[in-house]
Design a protein around this nucleic acid. Structure first.
Lengths: 248, 248
DNA sequence: CGTTGCCTTGAGCCCCTTCAACGTAAGTGG
DNA sequence: CCACTTACGTTGAAGGGGCTCAAGGCAACG
């Protein structure tokens, strides 16, 4: 098995949750060229304003899209998990409008734009799936914008945790649930537009309410219904139509 | 001249500012089918969750993309001006993830998805331009997310006004500038994640600083440099190629 | 065994919200 | 032509949610 196949098949699953494929189309995606790269935690693998000629598929680890104000305050505008093509959008717009940064140790597969563009030109359904992927990405950003502008700090934290658990296919009604939680509190703060101090306090409140515990890189949801309700979480916007998806 | 041509040619200009065309491609866009519709102020023309089979081109007026929290607080996540296809993204994702609402009296042209999809399949450069349009839309939403999460109230208001003037091609370095300002203060508040009361106060401060006056549906920028600096505004993210485009 | 990364907590403050009131201009029906 | 309504803008007073600043704790690691 060809070394890119692991990452590419995850991506295919992700695309496949929103589109459907012929065997030929699947084959074309699975044989895309690309080079694997290991990114250390906290390292940018795409820099702001840079001209790029490849898109980065997250094979393992976690990546964030970073925006900054002039005086250095940060906001993470998107979180990318394995199977996401973090900057598929750079195919039509090859100047990076935001930096991409590895939040943990991350393996990426850099796939040349030329290959992706050719694929889209030859197979219109793939072109539409790429477009769809960018659109869903934007819908998630919109939801984050609403959350960070209009929800309380506690709700923002809760919302982020709901989304995370849902995207990893671990959050479901009813039961207690635990899962790996690779993010630290300053990541949390930067995704919710808070300070780390306040993110910490909100986590404490959720813990004291018996809703959630995060400890030693693991999260434990004790009361999914309450968490979901505080967060006003409704997974519709994620546009995930179906079943199990790969894990970290 | 065919009645859709006005709107379509504006859209072509908009797409053309980020892509370039052959005469054949231009012709194909200009002869797209569509039905004109007049929307009264404050009316939704796409409702949340609705299944749609057409995309809405703004011919005149102004439209906003609305998101709401459970207890009815609103956030406008995008502003659409004439020449924008407000929900081109509904072609690949035909369930509306947000409502579209006319902020003033607005004329829209509803263009069937089928026609747009066919066009994209026949002309790959058009398909890529559509995709690009969605990507730029997402970049603007990201910038709004950063602004609303990390800038002060005053800076948010200033930023929105900078963007507005730039998109209408009226904001340029140096001189005093006046232009039509169709938005009211609660629109402003809903785009910046503030209350109307506070939006009002920030406008007052900007007025008292001698930077900006808004009166009788007109805006007058008295000190573009200060406004730009308060807002930390950098037009890069708008990806408008015509006109002066400074590099990072 | 000092350093580094991350988490935690307290005290004080301020930006923005909330609530309430009032002003003005345009529209509408009597 | 006046009474009433509606939309929008404006201002004040008071309160609170989240920030700032500061300190200290713990675990991993060289």
């Amino acid at each position: 098995m060809h070394s890119n196949a692991l990452g590419l098949s995850r991506w295919l699953d992700r695309l496949g949750s929103r589109s459907s494929w012929s065997a030929e189309e699947e084959g074309a995606i699975l044989t895309l060229p690309g080079t694997l790269e290991r990114i250390a935690p906290n390292r940018d693998f795409v820099r702001l304003g840079e001209r790029v000629d490849n898109s980065c598929l997250i094979v393992s680890g976690l990546a964030g899209r970073f925006a900054r104000t002039r005086n250095g305050e940060r906001l993470i505008t998107a979180l990318h998990i394995p199977g996401d093509m973090a900057d598929l959008h750079s195919v039509p717009v090859p100047i990076a409008t935001a930096a991409l940064n590895a939040l943990t140790e991350t393996m990426i597969l850099r796939i040349p734009h030329a290959a992706l563009r050719t694929l889209g030109q030859q197979m219109p359904r793939i072109a539409e799936a790429f477009w769809r992927d960018s659109v869903v990405d934007a819908a998630i950003i919109s939801e984050w914008a609403l959350r960070n502008a209009r929800l309380s700090a506690k709700a923002r934290i809760a919302h982020l945790i709901c989304e995370f658990s849902w995207r990893f296919e671990v959050g479901r009604e009813g039961d207690r649930v635990t899962f790996g939680w690779p993010l630290n509190q300053s990541h949390l703060a930067d995704m919710t537009g808070l300070t780390t101090v306040h993110a910490n306090r909100m986590l404490r409140e959720l813990r004291e309410d018996g809703i959630l515990r995060i400890k030693d890189r693991r999260a434990e949801i004790l009361d999914w219904k309450k968490l979901r309700s505080i967060a006003e979480f409704d997974e519709q916007y994620l546009q995930l139509q179906q079943g199990p998806r790969p894990r970290i």
